[in-house]
């Protein structure tokens, strides 16, 4: 199994619902977030182009955060999901420093926290909270090894890119362009 997410930058309107839904679903403390939305605009009036991306942990295949964690708190679980074991994390920050996407934040309780692909939901057959809420249905989630999953199908149909592929992390968050 290899879970992955695809974000359709052509449909995303940058409403940030994914951020709010993640916050309430996962009790992300106010002031922090596991996902965020970036808007990139380029050109000169009136020749303009805009790309909007909902970003979160890339659940990298080659995850530097897992490698550099001194306690093994950052780890990869089934489906390639990168999670932090709160009871093993000492809050040293090495994983935050190692993530090229700044996908992690220090939880006020001490440990480091990040997107879990809503592991607690997907194992119950639900889609991640951000995917389930998105009003434009621009987030696709599923198992890349299952060729009929939402995410496999859309990646077959559409052009896509990943962020900073040159960092060698092999990210599993795909942006449809």
């Amino acid at each position: 199994m290899r879970y992955a997410m695809a974000v359709d930058t052509r449909k995303c309107v940058g409403c940030s619902d994914c951020v709010v839904a993640c916050q309430t679903e996962n009790n992300v403390p106010i002031g922090f977030c596991r996902d965020w939305v970036v808007e990139v605009m380029d050109g000169t009036y009136p020749q303009l182009e805009m790309e909007i991306r909902s970003e979160r942990c890339n659940h990298c295949e080659n995850a530097p955060c897992v490698r550099c964690c001194p306690t093994g708190a950052s780890q990869k679980i089934e489906g390639g999901i990168v999670v932090v074991d709160h009871n093993k994390c000492i809050g040293c920050g090495a994983c935050m420093a190692s993530c090229p996407y700044d996908a992690r934040y220090p939880h006020p309780a001490g440990y480091v926290d990040k997107c879990t692909f809503c592991e607690h939901r997907i194992k119950n057959g639900l889609s991640p909270a951000c995917v389930a809420v998105c009003p434009t249905k621009c987030l696709y989630f599923g198992d890349l090894h299952d060729l009929n999953s939402n995410v496999s199908v859309i990646l077959k149909r559409r052009k896509f890119k990943t962020l900073i592929p040159e960092a060698g992390t092999n990210p599993q968050l795909y942006f449809l362009i």
């Binding site: 940030s16 939305v37 700044d102 934040y105």
Partner: peptide
């Protein structure tokens, strides 16, 4: 002009680790 903005208000030192 290129403009990159975080529209979900993440520009917060508490969040940008």
């Amino acid at each position: 002009m290129k403009e990159e903005t975080i529209v979900s208000g993440r520009m917060n030192q508490l969040i940008d680790p």
